[in-house]
């Protein structure tokens, strides 16, 4: 086991997969000479050169399309969006092309491309750089959507995503790049897509959290334990699509209470979908209505106090847990 930041774990995953498979290349804005806008690709260009690490013009739709076409023609591109906010420019390629190609070609053309980059809020980068887009992409059959929350998950899931034959939306979180965690050694360490992870076991209430809300939910769980003797289980789906609803259902069957914490806006969010699926799969096991903590329904403000107010935090999650526990 090595202790790595999420940034370095991602870097390792890329490096190992580039070495493992000649068809893997990394393309995006500033990924090569500049070492990556967030340094996830640090050192890779120096090591692997122009063929494997490619700087693009600022042309999101264009290089996303190159990723799709190259994947159809047999390569395994890893396309970096400097942030997922910019992917909206490329969404035609992701949604109308990558997601649907395998199906509309009757199963002939696989699109093994990974689109990756930081998703959600950062530090006071305001409205156009702070959106969490996972719900939008999760809405399209054909795409897989991944949101890791630890260094080990980041590495294991990225390696699996690169090896996957489908287009994968791999969403990191800028606030979390520096978070450290233990990562198993070895080039063969992978984590399968579609398998949730119970980050903390508990008996009284389940929190489903992902990406940025996982560490917050864990803090909230500790607080509930210390102050109210409430035992909280924290489930991290890790992959939004395919969603491991079974693990969440089993947790809710145990705890009878569910709080969903997510960084995205609430309307038609992944949390809304999970709430529906829990109603479908564990209705008779609920002791309280499901609560959801999301970012407020407003574009992200710049001012620090407003940004803090907009986002989920420990207190908001604690309040929700107390509510479902009738405390």
């Amino acid at each position: 086991m090595a202790t790595l930041t999420i940034r370095d774990a991602l870097n390792q995953a890329l490096r190992e997969e580039i070495i493992r498979d000649d068809n893997v290349f990394v393309m995006g804005e500033e990924v090569a000479e500049y070492d990556g806008a967030y340094k996830v690709t640090r050192g890779l260009w120096k090591e692997f050169g122009d063929k494997r690490i490619i700087d693009t013009p600022i042309t999101e739709l264009g290089f996303a399309a190159v990723g799709v076409g190259a994947a159809m023609a047999g390569l395994r591109p890893v396309i970096e969006f400097m942030t997922w906010n910019f992917s909206v420019l490329a969404s035609d390629q992701i949604i109308n092309h990558a997601a649907k190609m395998f199906y509309m070609s009757g199963g002939q053309f696989k699109v093994p491309v990974v689109f990756r980059g930081p998703n959600g809020s950062a530090f006071q980068v305001s409205s156009q750089h702070s959106h969490s887009l996972e719900a939008m992409y999760a809405n399209f059959p054909g795409l897989k959507v991944v949101q890791p929350s630890t260094a080990a998950d980041a590495k294991g899931l990225l390696k699996s995503s690169i090896r996957d034959d489908n287009p994968v939306i791999f969403m990191e979180q800028e606030r979390m790049y520096g978070l450290k965690g233990e990562v198993p050694d070895g080039d063969d360490f992978t984590i399968p897509l579609g398998v949730a992870d119970i980050k903390r076991e508990g008996t009284d209430c389940t929190i489903v959290a992902r990406s940025m809300t996982v560490p917050i939910a864990l803090q909230a769980a500790e607080k509930m334990q210390a102050e109210f003797d409430v035992s909280v289980e924290v489930v991290d789906p890790r992959t939004i699509k395919p969603l491991d609803i079974e693990t969440i259902v089993n947790s809710v069957k145990k705890t009878n209470r569910l709080v969903i914490a997510e960084e995205s806006h609430s309307f038609a969010s992944v949390g809304a979908e999970i709430a529906y699926q829990i109603m479908d799969g564990a209705f008779d096991h609920l002791d309280a209505p499901i609560k959801r903590i999301s970012t407020v329904e407003a574009p992200m403000p710049y001012a620090k106090n407003l940004e803090t107010l907009a986002l989920p935090d420990v207190d908001k999650i604690v309040a929700a847990v107390k509510e479902v526990c009738y405390l």
Partner: peptide, 14 residues
């Protein structure tokens, strides 16, 4: 047009 560009990219790459 973009996808075709990617196909050509792959042909050159390989």
């Amino acid at each position: 047009i973009g996808v075709g560009t990617g196909m050509a990219y792959a042909a050159k790459y390989k």
